[in-house]
């Protein structure tokens, strides 16, 4: 039976590949031997608590942060040695809202951005600006977090990059604009062949977009897999158990989350469903229900420290 969480995605062309990324900021380990594989065309959701290393990973791809060990490649290009070419293919929405020139008007900043990206699509930029209700005559420095985020999204999407790095793209947006923004990203993906690496705390919002997931905790990669593998391998089992039930030792290592109430337990277990049911039954339990998890619940289970 499979008990170890998968940490490698095999097969197909890779848009992003990192090998053993390790980065320390003083005593703090930001990344610890992180090896990611992001398939070409995937929407890869990078999840983890604050300080898990999500933003640092994205910054390594842009050569904003240089690792102590390990290498990163985007479309086969080394992110450090061929950084300008890598960045020419990336649309980036950073976490911080003060990105860009605070003293510049929105319209002028978009023009500035356009000159740096030969593939800038003027009509598309205009459509995005209209959709996001951007006010071209306002200075970047006076925009709210949500308004700045919409400008950043326009800057990231309008040159139709091959790779989108979105670091909390809906942070600061009101619910309506969040929905609108995710719709724009979905339309963009339908329209342009793009690989997306997405970091967000609002996992439930991107459930319909993400087809791969990578889980970081304390700078280390805990798991990465496709959504299909996640959906097939992670289930919640509601089990009726006898009093003084000793548990199911044969499932040690596969149980990610345990909730116990009286004579019933709910275990979130990684493994093939038939195997898990057989082991639970052999241990004296009666499986009453097997429930597939939402992306948010799966994420919470994968982040659970009870491993």
């Amino acid at each position: 039976m499979r008990t170890a969480l998968p940490k490698r995605i095999d097969g197909g062309n890779l848009a992003v590949e990192t090998r053993g990324l390790t980065k320390r900021f003083g005593d703090q380990v930001a990344l610890n031997d992180v090896s990611l594989q992001v398939p070409d065309g995937a929407v890869y959701l990078l999840v983890g608590p604050n300080g898990a290393g999500k933003s640092t990973t994205l910054k390594v791809l842009l050569d904003l942060v240089r690792t102590d060990q390990g290498t990163a490649e985007v479309f086969g290009l080394n992110c450090r040695d061929r950084a300008p070419e890598v960045r020419a293919n990336i649309g980036y929405v950073p976490e911080r809202p003060d990105w860009g020139y605070g003293w510049m008007h929105v319209g002028r900043l978009l023009k500035h951005q356009a000159l740096y990206y030969p593939t800038w699509d003027v009509d598309y930029a205009a459509r995005l600006a209209q959709k996001f209700e951007l006010r071209m005559d306002r200075k970047m420095g006076v925009l709210s977090k949500g308004q700045a985020r919409r400008v950043h999204l326009t800057m990231a999407l309008a040159h139709r990059p091959s790779l989108l790095l979105l670091d909390e793209p809906t942070d600061g947006l009101d619910p309506l604009m969040r929905d609108e923004t995710l719709g724009v990203i979905a339309d963009h993906l339908a329209d342009s062949p793009t690989t997306v690496m997405l970091s967000t705390h609002h996992v439930e919002e991107v459930e319909r977009l993400a087809d791969h997931i990578g889980v970081l905790r304390n700078g280390a990669l805990r798991a990465q897999m496709s959504r299909a593998d996640l959906d097939a391998g992670l289930r919640r089992y509601r089990v009726e158990v006898p009093e003084q039930w000793p548990g199911a030792p044969s499932l040690n290592g596969a149980v990610l989350r345990r909730v116990t109430s009286a004579r019933e337990v709910q275990w979130t277990v990684w493994g093939e469903e038939a195997d898990v049911i057989q082991k639970l039954t052999a241990a004296g339990g009666t499986v009453r229900e097997v429930v597939p998890l939402s992306l948010l619940d799966a994420t919470l289970a994968l982040l659970n420290p009870n491993d």
């Binding site: 062309n13 890779l14 848009a15 070409d40 479309f75 086969g76 290009l77 300008p84 070419e85 020419a88 293919n89 020139y101 003293w103 510049m104 002028r108 500035h112 000159l115 740096y116 990206y117 030969p118 593939t119 040159h159 990059p161 091959s162 062949p193 690989t195």
Partner: peptide
Amino acid sequence: MTSTQLHPTPDTRVVAAEQFRAVGLAV
């Protein structure tokens, strides 16, 4: 590796001209 068609980097002269204009605005 990938089959994605890569985008070009900008011409240095274009960057220099734009930076000249942008710096002019900044000061």
